[in-house]
């Protein structure tokens, strides 16, 4: 189950509003390669994982992505506070604003609402891990594109942190992949007995 700790994983303190930037950063909240998708992907895949290590990794990275979701939501909230209508129009924030005001809503930068179609949970332990490797790269690229869109150090610091986390997650999924491959190849002995359904693969 989940416990909430009342603090951020990485501090978010953005002194300058920038609704145009909020409109872009929201894509890591509810967009195709964002943290909500990542979190649901890994937490859903957990159930059909086969090795204790890969179950742990899916569980723990899925959980960390929720913390990242909170950071992104916080960034969008702080970037879009206290705006007047002229600022809103000038920033191209008006189409988001009429549907959500200055609230936070899971959608992509283009305004497409979040959908489970953004991720897969295939029930096949190898396929799922390959999906996850790709997902972490997509997220890394997205953070790089977002970082190109601003010079504000208050925004760049959390983005830089989040980008590096994607690289670390990729490494962990890669290690999980090796463990699952060994398990399925039966090259090692594992403490966990192989379930009947996995024999004779």
């Amino acid at each position: 189950m989940w416990i909430y700790e009342k603090k951020q994983e990485f501090p978010v303190k953005i002194k300058t509003q920038n609704p145009a930037l909020a409109k872009l950063i929201i894509t890591q909240y509810g967009g195709p390669d964002g943290e909500l998708g990542a979190s649901l992907r890994y937490l859903s895949q957990r159930y059909s994982a086969v090795t204790p290590q890969s179950k742990a990794i899916l569980n723990d990275i899925g959980t960390e992505e929720l913390a990242h979701l909170e950071m992104i939501g916080t960034m969008c909230h702080q970037l879009s506070r206290d705006l007047d209508p002229d600022e809103i129009k000038k920033a191209g924030f008006d189409s988001y604003f009429v549907d959500h005001g200055c609230g936070v809503y899971p959608a992509s930068a283009a305004g497409v609402p979040f959908t489970a179609a953004y991720f897969q949970s295939k029930g096949d332990p190898l396929t799922d891990l390959y999906e996850n490797l790709a997902a972490e790269q997509k997220a890394r690229s997205t953070y790089e594109y977002l970082m190109k869109m601003t010079d504000d150090p208050d925004v760049l610091e959390p983005l830089r942190f989040l980008r590096e986390r994607e690289i670390v997650h990729f490494q962990r999924f890669g290690e999980a992949l090796e463990g699952v491959r060994e398990y399925l190849d039966q090259k090692r002995q594992f403490v966990m007995p192989m379930p009947e359904s996995m024999k004779d693969k």
């Binding site: 790089e144 970082m147 830089r160 942190f161 989040l162 980008r163 590096e164 986390r165 690289i167 670390v168």
Partner: peptide, 16 residues
């Protein structure tokens, strides 16, 4: 480590 995003120096990949 917090600023870099990881405690492992070999995993740090500096962007820009």
């Amino acid at each position: 480590a917090l600023l870099a995003g990881t405690v492992f120096p070999e995993l740090v990949d500096i962007y820009k």
